[in-house]
Amino acid sequence: MIKLRNIDRYFDSKFQRTFVLKGVDLDVEQGEFVSIMGPSGAGKSTLLNIIGLLDEPNAGEYYLLGDPAFQLKEKKKVQYHRSHIGFIFQAFHLIDELNVYENIETPLIYRNVKTKERKALVADLLDRFNMVAKKDLFPSQLSGGQQQLVAVARAIVGNPKLLLADEPTGNLHSEQGEMIMKLLKKLNEEGMTIIQVTHNEAFANYGSRIVKLVDGLIQEDYQVKK
């Protein structure tokens, strides 16, 4: 599903070139749940951003769902974001002006899903995440865990093939974090490919595979023992 070959990402300053990623090769198959780990500044988020088409590599090749994805036009990227990739972030990043229901509904609106179908899909998710009573609240009125729950709902409402999570539990206390991780695991079991970046060893183990990144290089890459 994802094929990264010899990916470089660097920043040029006046006198030197600083590499964030250097020669990264990575393959992720459909249905995997990959946890990317590593110390601060190792390039975890950059790698995730490149996978999520939020950033472009300076060198190397990237194939997403079999298509070359390293030189996509802006318009094409929007298409991918609409239908193939869902995101969740450490800081939740919900749209402040919209309430829970509208936040979840928004991606569907941008994809021109019909009103009836939209209502059904959003209602389903609200039901499943136990958020029906909170559907009219605004993000600022929710706890962190609830906000992340909404963010997950928003990310998967369009039924993407790939879910990218950048430290989804970073701003949550452990109980909430666990709840989110269980949810992700369940989604993975239902067939969704997930890649997460995390600092937390325990949470990394919810996944099926761990990739350890140090100074822009993949140091370890192993399956989690069940």
């Binding site: 939020l54 802006e74 318009k75 929007v78 974001h81 609409r82 995101f87 990043h93 919900l94 749209i95 402040d96 002006e97 928004t106 991606p107 941008y110 994809r111 928003r154 369009g158």
Partner: peptide, 16 residues
């Protein structure tokens, strides 16, 4: 800008 980026991420085009 963050809000606007988020809209783009969930599928808003520049026209949107």
């Amino acid at each position: 800008s963050l809000q606007i980026s988020m809209r783009k991420l969930v599928g808003a085009s520049n026209i949107h």
